[in-house]
Write a protein that binds this DNA or RNA. Structure first.
Lengths: 145, 145
DNA sequence: GTATTACCTAAACCTGACTTTAGGTCAATG
DNA sequence: CATTGACCTAAAGTCAGGTTTAGGTAATAC
């Protein structure tokens, strides 16, 4: 059993945030000892799931919904699975989107390296939009598609 | 030359957002014809950069700073390059973070597939934390590290 | 000539995710 | 026995990134 301060330390999450999560119903089964929250392994695992779902871009209201399902036992396995499948697809999309952004950023890095070397952007402008060096052209094209 | 409505269509960005960007100084050189904004190729390119920097997680104030640098010519090439290098590193970090999240989500998908098949979580609980099937163990371990 | 459509502004409003504030309880320490 | 430290609540405040509202102009369509 842990106090809110210990959990805050363990996860690097401010106490105020943990209390806010609790107020929002993210720890549906948390116990209290004369008013004081007692975090068990259940809540530690819950917090790991919160971090994961949060990192996947899910909002707090939907995380709360998920936590309610976990209190309903095996009847909600299918819904919970569905949620994770959707989050998986969303994160895969997000990674693809970031991969494109990354190619655009790499192109821009090359752009400014070249502009610094040349002292101006004239030579690059003359190569646009389809006469860039092959490797750079790939980045440029992927970054816009 | 394009009107704000045409640009909104082209980029799939609400007109209100484009006006908001302008108010925030993201189109430092935009022209007006008796009060009406006229978007040229310069602003189209600016919007592509806004989308890219935004997607990289940069806030609007910092994007504005960048746009100011572009109006100062070759004197700011080095600062602009530095910004893109930093965004590149930030996006690389974010992709790594999402990769971990993805592994955790894949593990959770397997978890619920298995729980559904078994009708309960007992068999899985008995395998935790280090007797999971090899492929799943990899996902589980990576997702927490 | 009026009605519609596309544009304009300033300012208020909204949402999500916290954080801060103000005031209080309770156990241990000097 | 008073002060410190760790906990508590409710409510207000903050911030980013927009969106909505209310009121106005100006060209085209019927």
């Amino acid at each position: 059993m842990y106090t809110i301060g210990q959990i805050s330390e363990m996860f690097g999450i401010p106490i105020s945030t943990l209390r806010y999560y609790d107020k929002e119903g993210l720890f549906p089964k948390i116990e209290r000892q004369s008013g004081i929250r007692r975090f068990s392994e259940t809540e530690v695992e819950t917090l790991r799931i919160i971090e994961c779902l949060n990192a996947s871009g899910l909002g707090i209201k939907d995380i709360k919904q998920f936590m309610e399902w976990t209190t309903e036992g095996s009847a909600t396995y299918a819904r919970r699975r569905q949620l994770f499948e959707k989050r998986k697809a969303a994160v895969e999309d997000e990674i693809r989107r970031l991969q494109k952004t990354l190619d655009m950023l790499k192109y821009k890095c090359w752009y400014y390296e070249t502009a610094i070397r040349d002292g101006n952007e004239d030579r690059i402008s003359a190569m646009l939009p389809d006469r860039l060096p092959p490797e750079i052209q790939k980045l440029y094209d992927h970054g816009r598609s």
